[in-house]
Amino acid sequence: MIILIAGDTHTGKTNLAQKLLEHFKIPYLSIDHLKMGVNRSGNSVLTPESDDDALTEKLWPIVREMVKTCIENNQSLIVEGCYIPFDWKKDFSEEEKKSISYLCLIFCRAYLEKNFEQIRKYENIIERRQYSELSLPDMLHSNEKGLQNCIEYRLDHILIDNKYEVFPLAVASIEKQLKDRT
């Protein structure tokens, strides 16, 4: 089983991956770790501050092939990060897609407007951020864009609109996706 967890910055992808690791006993890969490894190794001109599209273009082919290798070897992995493209399905065969569950975390406008400072408070809950140029207008725009893309590509997502209770919804979504395939 492969679980892809996508979403905008600060939506809790890494925290959710950690909880899913504990629940399903499946290791996870943070694409941010891969990004930092590529950057620190000197194998890329991109930096952590590079445009998300440029980072996706560089990192997704590597992650995609790691996922395919796991599927070929019947291994499970949770992959989380901002750099999973919304059109990810085009990169996998129908058979491969049967092994993949996808979930995108999205904040709704009202939640962001009400809880922006709280979101900032928890930004280092799993990983320390060396920099954070988080702004409410940017988050409003990118989460709305993410929701539109999930609808366009018919992707499972959790819309965080009242309370931040992602874990039970994520487990239910993943289990439903697995059940629907059998």
Rank of each mutant, 00 (worst) to 15 (best):
Leu136Asp: 10
His33Gln: 11
Val67Ile: 15
Glu72Cys: 09
Ile71Phe: 01
Ile71Gly: 03
Ala54Phe: 06
Glu113Val: 09
Arg109Ala: 11
Ile158Ser: 02
Lys145Val: 14
Ala17Val: 08
Ile71Pro: 00
Lys58Val: 08
Leu134Asn: 06
Arg40Val: 14
Ile26Pro: 01
Leu34Tyr: 06
Gly37Val: 08
Glu133Leu: 05
Gly37Met: 09
Leu21Ile: 08
Gly12Pro: 01
Gly81Ser: 04
Lys145Tyr: 13
Asn124Leu: 02
Glu95Trp: 11
Val45Ile: 15
Asn115Asp: 13
Arg154Ala: 14
Glu80His: 04
Lys68Ile: 12
Arg109Tyr: 09
Leu103Trp: 00
Ile62Trp: 02
Leu4Tyr: 03
His141Lys: 10
Gly37Asp: 12
Gln130Trp: 15
His33Phe: 14
Phe86His: 08
Glu96Phe: 04
Ile62Pro: 01
Glu96Asp: 07
His157Ser: 05
Arg120Trp: 00
Thr14Ile: 01
Tyr131Gly: 06
Phe92Thr: 03
Val79Ile: 09
Met66His: 10
Asp51Tyr: 09
Glu94Leu: 13
Asn115Pro: 00
Arg64Leu: 11
Glu144Phe: 04
Trp60Phe: 10
Ala6Lys: 14
Ile151Val: 13
Gln75His: 13
Ile125Asn: 08
Glu165Val: 07
Asn15Tyr: 13
Ile158His: 02
Lys35His: 13
Lys98Met: 12
Pro61Thr: 13
Gly42Thr: 12
Asn39Leu: 00
Ile106Arg: 00
Leu112Tyr: 02
Thr11Met: 02
Arg128Tyr: 10
Val67Glu: 07
Tyr131His: 11
Trp88Ala: 01
Lys176Asn: 15
Ser41Leu: 08
Leu34Cys: 05
Leu21Ala: 04
Ala170Asn: 06
Arg181Gly: 01
Trp60Thr: 07
Lys89Met: 09
Asp87Thr: 10
Lys68Arg: 14
Ile71Ser: 01
Arg64Tyr: 09
Tyr131Pro: 00
Pro48Asp: 11
Ile119Gly: 02
Ile3Ser: 01
His23Arg: 06
Leu178Met: 14
Val79Arg: 00
Met1Cys: 08
His33Ala: 15
